[in-house]
Design a protein around this nucleic acid. Structure first.
Length: 655
RNA sequence: GCCGGUGUAGCUCAGUGGUAGAGCAACGGUUUUGUAAACCGUAGGUCGCGGGUUCAAAUCCCAUCACCGGCUCCA
């Protein structure tokens, strides 16, 4: 064995090389670079791996010193915060056993089993108080490689920490580590089985908030122990935490359920059953505009519209395999003349019946069948959520039947349509390509061909995508597209799947150039997805302020006094004949009051008519965001809004 | 489905064992208004539903329904 080097050299992010004594840690490196860096350092990234500040560095490592400026450092902060929380909970509830406590996208949680006690929201404050004490006491977090795993397991078992014992058993061959939390004297007061990494000390944790309680199962398995989960988050500064909480509050203000009450958009009723949406006139108007737009864009691309029954014999879903594979998500059968019928959970089998109703030549293809088809799915009661997760919804479903040679071109067409539709609503998006999973049907060659076609189409349109290896369903590779809304939240909406299953099950074919029968290729695609979900998402995206082309009421006419009513009615009639959605507020309320109300109803334009306007055939225009735009001739205003609607102009928010 | 929380007037909420309240909305009247709330008055509730405890229940207990948060992010 070669003698240990006395000096090691490490590479820094700027490319420079630093030489240090062997056995140095990230902290030593930080010290060697500059005292201010040493002070700000909270961890390291060694060869791309997030590590402790006190992790030993080896010769040739690439090392980056992590400070609180680096977003990656939040990972350390939150992971350590989770340990502080777990310790606090065990201090307050000594019978509590700890399970897992990972970080999440914007915080962390920890799962506990607390015999004979159920945490209530008031307890969160107590736990926060206890956490403050732990943080202020400046406990050290020390990595400790377990020398004798069996001994540690029995120790966990003695302490009743059965979850930790189970986890350690599982990781026994992976150099398992504990993180010890030590007081100023170096005495260990708490430990947790954890692979780390962690902050060096708890006094770095200064701003945290316990947010909510929930239930969770050990290892997410309903058969296993029910645990109590505490969700929390932490940030380096109180300001960052406050900003985060503010953003949460802002997002809550956009909640489509809340806005629905304000703007009279939709309702759900206990009497009619959960997860079933009633569209009120306002939101129905928005949906109508979207559907018209959707139809126009599909016509341009030579799609054909169809309608299929909502209730059909169960036989159809036996052939499609839905009964077998999707049965638990379907509504129960109903007996019609001794035969089981079902409400449809999907539109595809119906579209296949149309395709199958006659033989097809390759010359007929591609055939693109489109339907705004309402489907019914049984969703577990706890998962229902406003319009976003419901039990009956209308999908903008289309099925493209084509030859293998046409596949790539069809995908290109769908991606193009996606771009047109999504950009109209001001969404940006990103694609995810899901490839063959472990359990699949068909041949590897088929999968490879189809997956390559998808890939190639994505590349041709220049759409950035991530690959989700093995993420496809058993019958199809797919492209999923995630939208980013106005406040940066992600929404899964468009999806394109190339089905290897149904064409076989229904034995759909076409006659090729060679006179032989060939298997038809079938693409499922939804762009808006569920209209319920899409419209729910739009409400939040626009915070209830739909742009002019979508707004339920586009124009509100406000006559100043009774002598202006007649003129106002004339204008209302004129605008309505031009198919604008217009209302008039001729109540005997003050102008201020009526403006305020129209403004709160998010009506894009308010048209005030008084003496000045009467005499000049003009209107005083107020925009809900830009305020008073002054008086303009009526015809000029009409041109303006016609143009805005035609271009689907997003709302200017310059005020 | 499971865990925790919530359910009072159309909406937002107060009321925690002793005669159901407020603001806004609605309705009636006065006011005829120039760019985000005029004034006065009236009406509106089996306190989610069902059972129980009690002299007495919105309030305590049980059951049930609906809604809200969560149940994927791996020692």
């Amino acid at each position: 064995m070669a003698a240990e080097k006395e000096q090691i050299s490490v590479k820094l992010p700027d490319g420079s090389v630093k030489t240090l004594p062997a056995g140095s840690t990230g902290a030593d490196l930080a010290n060697a670079i500059s005292p201010s860096l040493a002070k700000a350092a909270v961890g390291t990234v060694i060869n791309g791996k997030l590590s402790d500040l006190y992790a030993k560095i080896s010769d040739g490592d690439e090392v980056r010193i992590l400070t609180t400026k680096d977003p990656l450092s939040l990972e350390l902060l939150r992971h350590s915060s989770a340990h502080v929380m777990a310790q606090a909970v065990q201090r307050l509830y000594p019978q509590a056993k700890i399970a897992m406590g990972p970080t999440t996208e914007d915080g962390f949680y920890y799962d506990f089993e607390i015999p004979n006690y159920k945490l209530v929201p008031e307890d969160l404050e107590k736990i926060e108080e206890e956490m403050k004490k732990i943080c202020q006491s400046g406990q050290k977090l020390v990595r400790y490689v377990i020398p004798d795993v069996d001994k540690q397991i029995s120790e966990f078992k003695e302490q009743g920490e059965k979850f930790k014992a189970e986890l350690l058993e599982e990781h026994r061959n992976a150099r398992p580590t504990l993180y010890l939390m030590q007081d100023k004297e170096g005495k260990t007061i708490w430990n947790d089985l954890c692979k780390g990494p962690h902050l060096p000390s708890t006094d770095l944790i200064k701003a945290f908030k316990l947010r909510k309680l929930s239930g969770a199962y050990w290892r997410a398995d309903e058969e296993k122990e029910q645990l109590q989960r505490v969700y929390a988050t932490s940030f380096w500064t109180q300001k960052d935490l406050d900003d985060y909480l503010y953003r949460i509050a802002e997002a809550e203000k956009r909640d489509h359920r809340r806005l629905s009450k304000q703007l009279d958009l939709f309702s759900l009723h206990e009497e009619t059953g959960p997860g079933l949406v009633f569209w009120h006139p306002n939101l129905a108007a928005v949906r109508g505009v979207i559907e018209d737009f959707w139809r126009d864009e599909h016509r341009k691309r030579n799609y054909q519209f169809v309608y299929t029954p909502h209730v059909v014999s169960e036989e159809l879903f036996a052939i499609s395999g839905h009964l077998e594979n999707y049965g638990e998500n379907m509504f129960a059968p109903m007996d019609i003349d001794g035969q089981n019928y079902r409400v449809k959970p999907m539109n595809c089998p119906g579209h296949i019946m149309i395709y199958k109703s006659k033989p097809h030549s390759y010359r007929d293809l591609p055939i693109r069948l489109a339907e705004l088809g309402t489907v019914y799915r049984y969703e577990r009661s706890g998962t229902l959520h406003g319009m976003l997760r419901v039990r009956a919804f209308t999908q903008d479903d289309t099925h493209i039947f084509c030859t293998p040679e046409q596949l790539e071109g069809e995908i290109l067409g769908v991606l193009d349509l996606t771009k047109v539709l999504m950009s109209a609503f001001g969404y940006t998006y990103k694609a995810y390509l899901s490839t063959r999973p472990e359990k699949y049907i068909g041949t590897i060659e088929q999968w490879d061909k189809v997956t390559n076609d998808l890939k190639s189409a994505l590349e041709k349109v220049g759409l950035a995508y991530d690959i989700e290896e093995g993420g496809g369903t058993f019958y199809a590779p797919k492209i999923d597209i995630k939208l980013f809304d106005a406040i940066g939240r992600e929404w899964q909406c468009p999806t394109i799947q190339v089905d290897m299953n149904l064409p076989e099950r229904f034995d759909i074919t076409y006659i090729g150039e060679d006179g032989n029968r060939h298997r038809t290729v079938m693409i499922h695609r939804a762009i808006l997805g569920s209209l319920e979900r899409f419209c729910g998402g739009l409400i939040e995206h626009y915070a209830g302020a739909f742009p002019l082309w979508l707004a339920p009421t586009q124009l509100m006419i406000i006559p100043i006094a009774e002598r202006h009513h007649e003129k106002a009615h004339e204008l209302e009639k004129k605008l309505r004949e031009l198919t604008f959605r217009v209302k008039m507020d001729d109540r005997s309320e003050t102008i201020n009051y009526r403006i305020r109300e129209a403004q709160q109803d998010q009506i894009p334009y308010m048209l005030v008519i008084g003496d000045k306007e009467m005499s000049s055939d003009s209107v005083a225009v107020r925009h809900r965001r830009q305020g008073d735009l002054g008086i303009m001739p009526i015809d000029q205003f009409i041109d303006r809004i016609k143009d805005e609607v035609a271009k689907r102009t997003p709302d200017k928010t310059s005020k």
